[in-house]
Nucleic acid binder design. Structure first.
Lengths: 359, 359
DNA sequence: TTGTAGGCGTTATCAA
DNA sequence: TTGATAACGCCTACAA
């Protein structure tokens, strides 16, 4: 097993940065006092504190993280693990939101975010090694697919970890944040049945992703509550093209459908293509719903009714929860679930609209 | 000045990980031999190497980065600096591409990517401190706005740095990668004039971003080459809504325009809105071009002719260039410019098409 | 080829 | 409140 750096990095020779020793000298105190002054100023006289503060700005002193980390066993950095083999999925604004939210949570901290993308199994092994190596104080995992066993792997390391999105393997009482996908799916069923549609179908997401499964579960529950039959279910891969193909089959087999719930806005776009290709209109013939309140939902030729969820808040929460768990190890915070909300647009307006002529 | 961590992170107490000492003991060699065996195996006998290798797997040994970094002065990590105050801009797939590309370049390396997003001036100061602190071996800066002075700041630190996108301040002979925005703008002018459009206008990007400025420069040059007048120029902020507003003004003032070049696909969408709101058609009345070959260009109600650029390659290149510069300090690689290519779609088809009836 | 010894910059312990 | 002093885990001359 090769534990050496595949490539080494040499450092550009520059003027060496001042050390704590230099700082203490300049401030006229001992290293210990300087150290204390720098770290919160516990048990240091105002005079000494002032002298050190002055020296810090004078010298442009910046503590050496490696040295500090070596003795404190803290790295002041956390990892964001993205076990996403597919580059296209990475394009999903979701990740931008997650990164932004976590960064926001870290803002008042000196904690840095290191990005761990593992696309291959090989990557995963390296990522896990990195995580176990104590190189970060905690991790946030964007959990998606059934296959990845990050939950168990990380539970075993004891590293403080927060999952964004309910992980598959719940046997390790992992801490996570999520949106109420079940509730969102139910909202969709309630809305479509509420506007009088009766022959409903859904284009669900991949069966190996919790978000997709939960939305489907909520959808079915909502239909049952409304006294409607389950109706046809087809699965697609959260992409526009995939959904278009799935919807074509769906429409061919069930030409009388009058309402479709697509489990994502991107998929709804594909479904809309298929509907129009079949010579039907939205919402005239078929009311269509998406999910996510993605930017495209608003700009679509027929703006999409969709489900919105507080993604940024969720990501911020994940960040702050991780910080808490790092500071208070052993505290196992409860999972946090954010509720979803319906956003009505033209694609489910009760009466057929002018835009239906688009078809 | 407070150089202390605003919040501290304590570590969960776990079984201490094996040290080099433990490894050496288990392998029956000295620390130095173990160290050498781990780092490339220079001057170590096959027997010793084998013993160490065995011990590594047996103990699950992982080198302590902090300790290693302390003595080697290398951190095996690089920073991606995103000086982007606007969250919405972060949603641009551009960043996903950049991150993916850099990660790809780092794949065979043990170098980690740390993300430095600085939205406020305060953030910038902290980011800069982090960079100067020697906490990373190099940095990649996504350079966008005129205001940020990262080029100078980083040049002063001597930290190996690569810019993605030509920086504004070129007085410090910074190394960068970019796409040929001038060439792309020229392509647009050539194409629109080539299909017979004569009264051309452009919705340019923000005047404080090099990409926007360069595209505009190329556009003007292309018009000149084609013997056409410069035509009207309006600026927008690379968003759909902003472009829609700008285009409304443009169309009101110049009702006879028959071709528009929007400096991004997202902006082209807004322009299309404005055109249709004005009761005109694309491409019947006005041929419309975008830029970026963004996913929306293909899915737009009238698919957009646009300019494509090898963004992933560019990002990968940035990563590998940085690694090179880190390994060979002082080598100042030449900037690399990737060429762009036209992608023809319906929005500039010569003859008016059925979709023109969309209006 | 191997091992010994010293030091990287910081924090933590403990006596003053 | 202060300041020696000893780690922290690793690499690297240097000597063997």
């Amino acid at each position: 097993m090769n534990t050496s750096p595949p490539r080494s990095l040499r450092h550009a020779a520059g003027r060496p940065s001042p050390t704590l020793e230099d700082l203490a000298l300049a401030a006229g105190v001992s290293r210990s006092t300087a150290s204390r002054a720098i770290n919160g100023g516990d048990r240091v006289s105002p005079a000494a504190q002032a002298a050190v503060d002055r020296a810090v700005v004078a010298l442009g002193y910046i503590p050496n993280r490696a040295a500090r980390s070596l003795v404190t066993r803290r790295t002041s950095s956390i990892a964001l693990v993205i076990p996403e083999p597919d580059v296209r999925v990475m394009m999903d604004p979701f990740f931008a939101v997650v990164i932004t939210g976590i960064t926001e949570a870290l803002r008042e901290t000196d904690v840095q975010l290191v990005l761990l993308m593992s696309r291959t199994d090989d990557d995963s092994a390296r990522t896990l090694r990195y995580l176990r190596g104590g190189h970060v104080d905690g991790a946030i995992v964007v959990s998606h697919h059934e296959a990845d066993s990050w939950a168990r792997s990380l539970a075993e390391t004891g590293l403080p970890t927060i999952f964004i999105g309910r992980p598959w393997d719940m046997t390790f009482d992992v801490t996570y944040v999520d949106t109420d996908n079940v509730g969102g799916g139910k909202l969709a069923a309630q809305h479509l049945s509420g506007i009088g549609r009766r022959r409903l179908a859904t284009v669900a997401g991949p069966a190996d992703m919790t978000a997709a499964v939960d939305r489907l579960r909520g959808w079915k529950a909502g239909l049952a509550e409304a006294g409607l039959p389950e109706g046809p279910v087809v699965h697609a891969d959260f992409t526009t093209d995939g959904a278009a193909a799935a919807a074509r089959l769906l429409l061919a087999e069930h030409p009388d459908i009058d309402g479709i719930f697509a489990a994502s806005d991107l998929m709804a776009l594909g479904v809309m293509e298929a509907i129009q290709a079949a010579g039907k209109t939205v919402p005239g013939d078929i009311a269509l719903m998406g999910y996510d309140n993605h930017a495209v939902a608003e700009t679509a030729s027929t703006p999409l009714t969709t489900i919105t969820q507080p993604m940024v808040e969720m990501a911020v929460k994940a960040g702050s929860m991780l910080l808490e768990e790092i500071e208070a190890p052993g505290s196992h915070p409860e999972p946090v679930i954010y509720s979803t909300r319906l956003v009505e647009r033209e694609s489910t307006s009760v009466a057929p609209t002018a835009s239906a002529a688009n078809a």
